[in-house]
Design a protein around this nucleic acid. Structure first.
Lengths: 217, 217, 217, 217
DNA sequence: GATGAATGAGGATTCATTCAT
DNA sequence: AATGAATGAATCCTCATTCAT
């Protein structure tokens, strides 16, 4: 049932099929090769255009990149927001993991786009941090405060970060593990196992006895 | 306390101070901007040379990159090998985490180099997989078989991968989290906390009840 | 009387004035300085372009060179083919000499292009040999078999080669002889004398008594 | 009497074995690829040296080229001089052809060096013309005046030039004809046949009826 | 909307040459 | 006499971008 673009722009004014096609191929190429490693000409060619024609749709390479990032990250932000009102912690965490994995499964370029941007410290990092990481941090911290957990308060951000690493890492490291596993990390079977694995981990951590520091307190 | 190059090359034919300097700056620049985003001229300039002079030391950009990768990864491989003979699982895991973190602390560019390579599916991935990931996978799997753990056999590779994501992610995502945390993820205090956090996680997982199959089935 | 390009390409997809201009100046420069001695920038400049612009018309220096060679040699090949049906040998030889000289007079760069290619053993030699020398060899040999001549069968190829040396040599050696003669070898008067001289030689050889080897036979 | 390098060293003042080796490989490379197409580094490497070391023996690329040319052409000039006093024309011509061919057989790079220089109109053309072509022209003209021949006076230079084209062409065109003949033009058998062919041609021309002016006018 | 053509800036690499060792 | 290291200039070519059509 879901199309290639799960979050259908909500109310876009006819997204100009060509524009969308450019965004698609640009997303794939930027995710593969990063901003510096991708040429406008290659993007245009992959979209069936000349480089010159691409400038009828975007103001330049940088603007195109921004659009790709924006289009990719907005749904992720929305997904986070839609989970801010939660239930019992042990379920919510596993649920959220499931939903995020489901989202990334449909947009497998996204983690690599984010990772590229994080690595090179690009100019969109600030927005990424503000719109995506900060809310997530806030939500996660709030959640962890509500329920007992093995973690100290000053570890909360590290826990959130760890979940991001686990979720994205599976995608960003896929080419490396593809070489060494028998399966493609991005193929459905392994994606499902990874999802269940992470959910299991979430449950283990949720039920882990927070008995430490009993003496230190 | 130790110098910047803890693993003294083991078999260098005369480190040629300039060559080493080039490798240093190239490592930093490649880690920051990736292969495509880094220009030979910039590397040379950062090393106090002309681009032409750099070619007296390396056969080209690609060869320089290979040398950087080689120099960076070899110690990591050796570190893995030196831990293949382990003690009680619960200690070994935390210990290994500590040692790896200590190593990465001294060579903070390494995780980003690896991540860049993994993202772009570069030509050195195969070597990376063979020399580093595969042994690690083998060692970890063996270790997990020896002791009870919450994980099924088919989850073992995912556990290893997860640890890699956790260890490297802290470094590769540092620029992103720097924007949102009050601290620099690569500064000593947070590095130490991350180390202890991961070790704690290791212990929690090691002692988690392996209630699998018994109840779920 | 006709223009500079007597053989109107026969099947050009739109000569694109600029492209033709580039070919013209490239032909002159390659003929003067050879492939290695000619820079793309110089060609572009001579055509009133930037080097970058030249790449909108040709895929690279090598491709441009190939196009120059192709454009130069094709008419020569066609000229040869149009003379394959001959009359009495003594006339045909002199006639052919006249036609070839007339052709070379209009395209004086051609012999030097060919000579450069032959000297450096370039990658287009094989094509040159196949399309131009081999048919010429075949035709000449056939012709010589039909009429008595002073030459033995195993000398036929050497005779053909000799004619090539005589025809091209006048052009390829022009700069050298310009220094020592009072006239320019490529100026009309001397070109005409050279033509008549070669035709006279052709007639002399055609009528030379083949009395040799009378005893050996 | 002669210079430092007439034929095989006869009495050289220990020509610095290395210098000679450089000259040898430079001659071969310049003959193959021309001046522009040959790099100092390649020459040095072929001589078993570094480019820097080559500068201990020659003042630079241009000087080395000049030395190669000088060393190659001087013997040719001497050869010409030694034949200035001739006997009966019909023998002298064939004899001279034989001697020149013999000389070129031993120094097969020479024709290509000369041809390269002639093609590119290099800076050594003047010397070449003065020392080699002009005497040859003078000698040949004188010789032709002494005996009846089919040629008019104003054709004399063309006859000389033709002989040069025939003699050198066999060598400069060798790569082209190698592709199309069954034999290597520079291998002994074909070299001998070419020599006999040219000598035969010389005799034919020498005995051709000088019916000029008488009938044609 | 699309494109061919043009271009300045910059990409990696090679070149001939110098100089201290 | 030989070399490693350095370099300015030049090599071919790609880049992102513009503009008239």
């Amino acid at each position: 049932m879901p199309g290639p673009l799960p979050y259908p722009a909500l109310s876009a004014p006819a997204p100009s099929q060509t524009r969308e096609r450019i965004l698609d191929v640009a997303e794939a190429l930027f995710a593969d090769q990063g901003f510096a490693g991708t040429s406008v000409r290659d993007i245009a060619a992959a979209a069936g255009l000349t480089a010159a024609s691409l400038y009828n749709h975007f103001d330049g390479k940088e603007a195109l990149y921004a659009a790709v990032l924006e289009r990719g990250i907005r749904p992720l932000v929305l997904l986070m927001q839609s989970h801010t009102g939660g239930g019992p912690a042990d379920e919510t965490a596993a649920e959220l993991v499931g939903h995020v994995m489901e989202h990334l499964r449909r947009r497998p370029h996204l983690p690599r786009l984010i990772q590229h941007e994080a690595l090179t410290g690009g100019s969109h990092l600030a927005r990424l941090a503000r719109d995506w990481v900060r809310p997530l941090l806030h939500y996660g911290t709030t959640e962890m405060k509500r329920e007992p957990s093995p973690w100290e308060a000053d570890e909360f951000p590290l826990v959130i970060a760890a979940w991001i690493h686990l979720l994205l890492g599976h995608f960003t490291m896929a080419p490396l593990f593809r070489e060494v596993l028998d399966e493609d990390p991005l193929a459905p079977p392994l994606l499902e196992r990874q999802t269940r694995f992470l959910q299991k981990l979430a449950r283990i951590l949720a039920t882990a006895t927070p008995r430490r520091r009993a003496s230190s307190k």
